[in-house]
Nucleic acid binder design. Structure first.
Lengths: 251, 251
DNA sequence: AGACTACAATTGGCTGAGCCACTTTGGCAA
DNA sequence: TTGCCAAAGTGGCTCAGCCAATTGTAGTCT
């Protein structure tokens, strides 16, 4: 539709592709679940080569805006909005984030999310939280499974907050937390696990009772205690240094 | 080159480049300010073609992990860790984040940041905050400049929190806020601007006095009031839009 | 000697053509 | 109707090469 689409841009041609897709989104031509034009078509539309289009799409892919499936096409993901956790993971590796930094961020974000969840959680979201609490009590003897239910409970609270920005940020730090915690979860103490499961149950009850202030207070205390549990484990392992009793299968 | 390499990975070759760089970072061979090997060298190291290396580097660039400068090389950025704000901007466009969503997220993050800042702010960071407060009072008649000082104050508080994760998240939402607010800032009411400047001054004073609870309370109230200011502006413009001013002066 | 300019090497940005692997689809045969 | 298979479409990757910006260096002018 534009024979006069000269390339007066001075910057990257690849970012012109990003801008083009952004326009399509802002114009409403692309939304969640939509499929983008094929790379070869996009190249014609924007007036750049296909490798350049691929570069732009790769940028969008890294941002989590699009996802490419070989043989099928490039799509805008459906479902709840999500910020890629990879960026935070790299940042953590580069700038040496401490465990306390992570717990502190979680306290700020998730205490707020718990308060909102108490005001807004739908019955469906409450049911999800109840499931995860049940999962916690059912997996007291399997630390890895327990950890997954733990994380899922917190993600569920974030989703129940009804605020997509808060939810996606909690997803980010949860992913970072999981990435680190997964390797040390085996050291957790039985009694601490039971305490944690109880804490989750009480948070769930506060949210279900629409008691925002109590939900906030309980979430705050839970995260403070969780941090001290983990600190204790690190301390204990420093002194014990036990040989790993279990062999793992290949890879 | 040779299909009988040890490249039996099934996944992207481009992500092998990302993983390679990640290894270099984890191993300590790359840190902030460091320069990556040239693309042509990296291609040899990883065993892929140069376009594939470029694809991987572009992913890292989108994540904010590296930055390429034509003719010079590809570097890991120095300075405080920062999460690209572009991802959140796209997410906002795709999922129709509301103004309330943004203010709510700011309340959660920045109230927490203000509390931490009161405990940890260095004298240098306090001086920066004081500068921005002065800038606010000095720009009461220029809404665009006022907005910049406003944002910078809040970024300064986040930086003073001493928590790099919280700081980078505040940067993200601040960028989103600025992107939207910039277009409507002209509508701000004189009296509201003065109120806002006062609020910032009081927050600064609380942080300087190391009174975390007061800093949190003031930040909370400030952000609540700022939201209602903005809502009022939108309402006013809804009724007054066609009423063109008789004169174009008064700026 | 010191400042400046011209140049050449290095490096990222981009192109075009092409091959491969996977997915989807539609027509054909049982 | 059901099942299968081949063709078309699509993204992943490579190769070879040219362009443009940067940078360090050698040579020139003042």
């Amino acid at each position: 539709m534009n024979p006069r689409d000269d390339r007066h841009d001075i910057g990257d041609s690849a970012s012109a592709v990003v801008a083009h897709v952004r326009q399509l989104i802002d114009r409403g031509a692309l939304g969640p679940g939509a499929r983008l034009p094929a790379e070869r078509d996009l190249a014609l539309q924007v007036g750049v080569s296909r490798p350049t289009v691929r570069a732009g799409l790769r940028t969008l892919g890294a941002l989590g805006v699009v996802r490419s499936r070989r043989g099928s096409g490039t799509y805008i993901p459906e479902g709840p909005p999500t910020l890629g956790a990879e960026a935070l993971s790299f940042l953590a590796a580069l700038h040496k984030f401490t465990v306390d930094d992570v717990y502190e961020t979680r306290r700020i974000l998730e205490v707020g999310a718990a308060g909102l969840a108490a005001e807004r959680a739908t019955s469906e979201q409450l049911a999800t939280l109840a499931d995860e609490v049940a999962g916690l009590f059912a997996s007291l003897n399997d630390r890895q499974v327990f950890l997954v239910h733990d994380i899922n409970f917190h993600r569920g609270v974030a989703a129940a907050s009804g605020n997509p920005i808060v939810a996606s940020m909690v997803e980010m730090v949860s992913a970072l937390y999981y990435e680190r915690r997964r390797m040390t979860a085996e050291r957790a103490v039985d009694r601490d696990l039971r305490d944690a499961a109880d804490a989750h149950r009480h948070i769930y009850q506060a949210i279900r009772a629409k008691d925002g202030e109590r939900a906030r207070r309980l979430m705050h205390e839970h995260l403070l205690r969780a941090r001290s549990y983990q600190a204790k484990e690190v301390l204990a392992s420093t002194f014990k240094v036990p040989a790993s009793p279990r062999r793992r299968a290949a890879r």
